[in-house]
């Protein structure tokens, strides 16, 4: 009997996805983790300044985004965005250089931690105003429908933003007009220091979609497979012309809200519980179990990524700051705009 059970349990762990898929997710998550670790280190050296919110703990969502949607789909998110930018295909050099405020950064040193953008990667940016990107993402998707494309716009925001009025207005119009927008709330449990349960009577944020008859579901944000599958379900629905879809991806940030937040409002036990479910650790375990890679190969992947991030920091450090006068660039498309002096 014991033997049968064992066989059965072994059977249930049969890989659902290919070796390439697992390794792609794994590499992306490790890249994001190591990028953010470098970010925190460089912040401590004051090479990076200003507000800075890292993605550590939430990497599985970014990993799922690399496979669940297409490169032609659009994406907009909030200010916890380094990991999302990498998942969109932006390179670590230009992202790190942006954090350093260098002219080689993805927005030429103009944006910093909260504002990466890349037209090439259909990445419409990190927005610094809580919830502002919800109607913006709806509008980006509106334009796709208007032009008759099959693309959707992934519009991401945090649990704090889910309480902004802009969400309710956007949901209503998106449903009424069947706009191809995939709303994702990354529910990491805390709007800065305020827990989800203290911001609303409605704790399961995805149920907000029901008021608009919007298909809505909760997703395990510590699992790239679960995120990938939910994205594919949602994308299929949206691409069929049925309008928006809402995913509440439940996740956790290991660090404070920003580098200046010690995160005293939560317990060590809570943090450790989530670390037990760490998406990188679990995916690594699966890869070894499925014999998709040996321990040595995993080490090599990690070494390669370490080198990539070392190189990104070196690139950022050695790049030049923009000239002060470049402050006047990119304020108007019009050339020779008569600025007041």
């Amino acid at each position: 009997m014991t033997q049968v059970l064992e066989k059965k349990s072994k059977k249930t762990t049969k890989p659902k996805y290919s070796k390439k898929q697992y390794l792609d997710w794994y590499k992306m998550m490790v890249r994001i983790r190591k990028f953010e670790e470098k970010t925190l280190y460089c912040y401590s050296l004051q090479k990076i300044r200003g507000f800075c919110h890292v993605y550590i703990g939430q990497e599985a969502i970014a990993a799922g985004l690399t496979s669940g949607i297409t490169a032609d789909d659009k994406l907009v998110t909030a200010y916890r965005q380094h990991g999302i930018a990498l998942a969109r295909g932006m390179d670590s050099n230009s992202c790190m250089a942006e954090l350093f405020g260098k002219v080689t950064g993805c927005v030429k040193g103009k944006g910093g931690s909260m504002h990466f953008f890349s037209k090439e990667h259909n990445y419409f940016g990190g927005n610094g105003i809580v919830g502002a990107q919800i109607p913006i993402g709806t509008g980006i998707a509106f334009a796709e429908k208007y032009r008759g494309s099959k693309n959707l716009c992934v519009t991401m925001f945090g649990d704090g933003a889910a309480r902004q009025g802009a969400l309710y207005e956007s949901f209503n119009m998106a449903m009424t007009w069947k706009i191809p927008v995939l709303y994702i709330v990354e529910n990491n449990g805390y709007a800065m220091g305020t827990s989800v349960s203290r911001t609303s009577n409605v704790k399961d944020i995805h149920t907000v979609g029901e008021a608009f008859d919007m298909p809505s579901e909760a997703v395990d944000g510590m699992s790239p497979e679960a995120v990938h599958e939910a994205l594919q379900r949602a994308a299929k629905h949206i691409r069929a012309g049925k309008g928006p879809y809402f995913l509440e991806i439940k996740t956790y940030r290991y660090k404070g809200h920003s580098v200046s937040d010690p995160g005293k409002y939560r317990t060590k036990d809570e943090l450790n519980d989530y670390k037990e479910k760490d998406p990188i650790k679990i995916t690594e375990k699966k890869i070894l179990e499925y014999k998709y890679a040996t321990k040595k190969e995993i080490e090599k992947i990690n070494d390669t990524i370490d080198k990539e991030m070392e190189a990104a920091v070196k690139f950022a450090d050695e790049s030049e700051y923009p000239l002060g006068s470049e402050l006047y660039d990119d304020n108007y498309v019009q050339e020779n705009y008569p600025f007041l002096t």
Binding site: R49, G50, E98, G101, K102, V103, G109, K110, G111, G112, S113, H115, Y321, P322, L323, G324, S325, E326, L327, Y328, N331, F339, L340, T341
Partner: peptide
């Protein structure tokens, strides 16, 4: 004497200029 007639970018050189 005002801040510059532009949006303030992130880099330290911009803050100094602005």
């Amino acid at each position: 004497v005002n801040s510059a007639d532009v949006s303030l970018g992130y880099a330290p050189t911009f803050v100094e200029e602005y």
